[in-house]
Nucleic acid binder design. Structure first.
Length: 515
DNA sequence: TACCCTTTGAAGGTA
DNA sequence: TACCTTCAAAGGGTA
């Protein structure tokens, strides 16, 4: 999340630490450490002032750890803090019935009318209503469908492994305006009550308020996404002596939140339906957002994570991994997992072909020339510029690392990039795609996958790695002939030609591919 | 029917 | 510490 962390107002890379919002606590620290956040997020923070006292605890990370370790003994310090949080929240953001659902009970002030960021300007608004979802669903990463009535056995299942214990609901008391201390006496299973009680969602069984993040362990989520209210169908629960563990989904990150909101818009504008293409557009739009705009989503995501932590103190992302591994629960079957593992191996095998290089932008240019770093280096990731120990391309392209190819990367890497762009070009959005907004980069995939230079400085290095990931996946999935062709061409090309290709926005690659 | 694709970000694991 | 992998949403496409 470069935009938020670009230190000193320059490009994102300035401070790698800019991985802001990585964690509430970390974020807080980063904010304090980085001048950027102080300035660029001043509005955000000011708008969040009320909440900052609440959620941006001195050390949110510690809060989580504390929560997780709470089962071993919740630190009094945290308890006090959370009590304070509860009190503050009681009189604050959650008093409004306008947010009758998790997690956006926690909607920050910026999303309130009197905030510095007006709701109208706030893109974090109603999303996917077209899908018959609650107007706030867009802000409800887990969807309001999770609040469908009657999940009966919740306590039983929830008290099982996945850390769905609710005895940390003293934390929730803050979010749900429960009297401090009152919730603390609630049993793990009972701690769910605050949800329904506080939400005032009529018709919901007090005990049946499922958390949106929880989905039935079986079945494809896509098919039951609007019926996830039930962790396990009663009949199934009865049938199965050992009900499958519910799957607690990961909290949505900022981009996911953004996607949920903007997807409908993109679909409407571009008449696209293919999610892959839509997501590409969304990714570009995401980079086109201003820092402030992105900050909203990061803040939402932060709160989302925070609430998720509080709801599932012992939950770990690993749980879902393990779900796939064990095949006991989770959306991923063993077969799926095996495929992923296979793909993983393929990736590793492919990466092994890359000799790698000790050289790094970080080391070569130093901190004083971070602007010359490649994207990954800015993120303290693997340098893509010296992968092959080759020459250093124009630093100006570093931010376009997603599309820029390393000077002379391994064939495999070229392959990845190649396929990436091939997809871009061969699977363009429908012609009905409307032109991008003035302030946005092309929303529709154009011949130049490059993000406009004007945005380059804000382009998160993640784009690079993300594309690499995508390319790697494509590598595993796509035939290699085009890759070989491109590789040969590129390997025979001079660095000048490559530079020209870059300058041409990869047109060379496309051309070579179509030849 | 199940998986793929595609995006960014977060988290966890590994060396 | 750096890097890698997986998962989160979404839904048309594909085998």
């Amino acid at each position: 999340m470069p935009q938020l962390s670009s230190g000193g107002g320059d490009d994102l890379g300035a401070n790698d630490e800019m991985i802001s919002f990585k964690d509430e606590g970390e974020q807080e620290e980063k904010i304090q450490e980085n001048a950027f956040t102080e300035r660029d997020l001043a509005d955000l923070k000011s708008s969040l002032v009320n909440e900052s006292e609440i959620n941006q605890s001195p050390n949110a990370a510690a809060v989580r750890r504390g929560q997780q370790s709470e089962q071993r003994g919740f630190p009094d310090k945290h308890r006090e803090h959370l009590d304070g949080v509860s009190k503050q929240q009681d009189g604050g953001m959650y008093k409004s019935p306008a947010y009758p659902g998790y997690p956006f009970l926690m909607l920050p002030d910026p999303y309130l009318p009197n905030s510095s960021v007006s709701p109208s300007s706030n893109k974090v608004s109603v999303v996917q209503q077209s899908h018959g979802m609650h107007p706030l669903t867009s802000l409800l990463p887990y969807g309001n469908d999770h609040f469908s009535p009657s999940p009966p056995h919740l306590p039983t299942d929830m008290s099982q492994k996945t850390g769905v214990h609710r005895h940390q609901s003293q934390d929730l008391s803050g979010y749900y305006s429960l009297p401090p201390g009152g919730v603390g006496q609630i049993t793990p299973s009972m701690s769910w009550f605050p949800h329904s009680l506080m939400l005032g969602t009529s018709g919901m069984h007090p005990t049946g308020i499922p958390h949106p993040a929880i989905v039935p362990p079986t079945g494809k989520q896509d098919h039951d996404q609007y019926d996830r209210g039930m962790y396990v169908k009663p009949q199934e629960a009865k049938r199965e002596k050992e009900p499958k563990k519910p799957v607690i989904k990961k909290p949505l990150n900022a981009f996911m939140l953004y996607m949920k909101e903007m997807r409908a818009k993109v679909i409407a504008e571009c008449t696209l339906k293919e999610s892959a293409a839509i997501n590409q557009i969304l990714g570009r739009r995401w980079h086109a957002l201003t820092r402030e705009e992105q900050a909203k989503y990061y803040e939402l995501a932060r709160k989302e994570r925070q609430l998720h932590m509080q709801l599932y103190p012992t939950w770990s992302a690993r749980d879902n991994y393990e779900a796939g591994l064990s095949g006991v629960a989770g959306e991923k079957s063993k077969a799926d997992w095996g495929k992923k593992k296979r793909r993983k191996r393929e990736k590793q095998q492919d990466s092994n072909t890359d000799p790698g290089s000790p050289k790094k932008c970080r080391a070569r240019f130093g901190l004083n020339q971070q602007t010359d770093w490649c994207g990954p280096c800015r993120r303290k990731k693997k340098c893509i510029r010296y992968l092959q120990g080759g020459g250093c391309p124009s630093p100006t392209s570093s931010d376009l690392s997603a599309i820029d190819s390393p000077p002379s990367p391994s064939p495999s890497r070229h392959h990845h990039h190649h396929h990436h762009h091939r997809l871009l070009y061969q699977r363009p959005p429908s012609p009905g795609c409307s032109p991008p907004p003035p302030t946005s980069p092309p929303t529709c995939l154009s011949l130049s996958p490059h993000t406009p230079r004007s945005h380059a400085t804000r382009l998160p290095p993640e784009q690079s790695t993300a594309n690499k990931r995508g390319d790697l996946r494509q590598l595993a999935a796509k035939p290699a002939h085009t890759h070989l062709e491109l590789s040969s061409r590129q390997t025979n090309s001079s660095s000048t030609a490559l530079s020209a290709a870059k300058a041409a926005g990869l047109s060379l690659k496309v051309l070579s591919e179509t030849q």
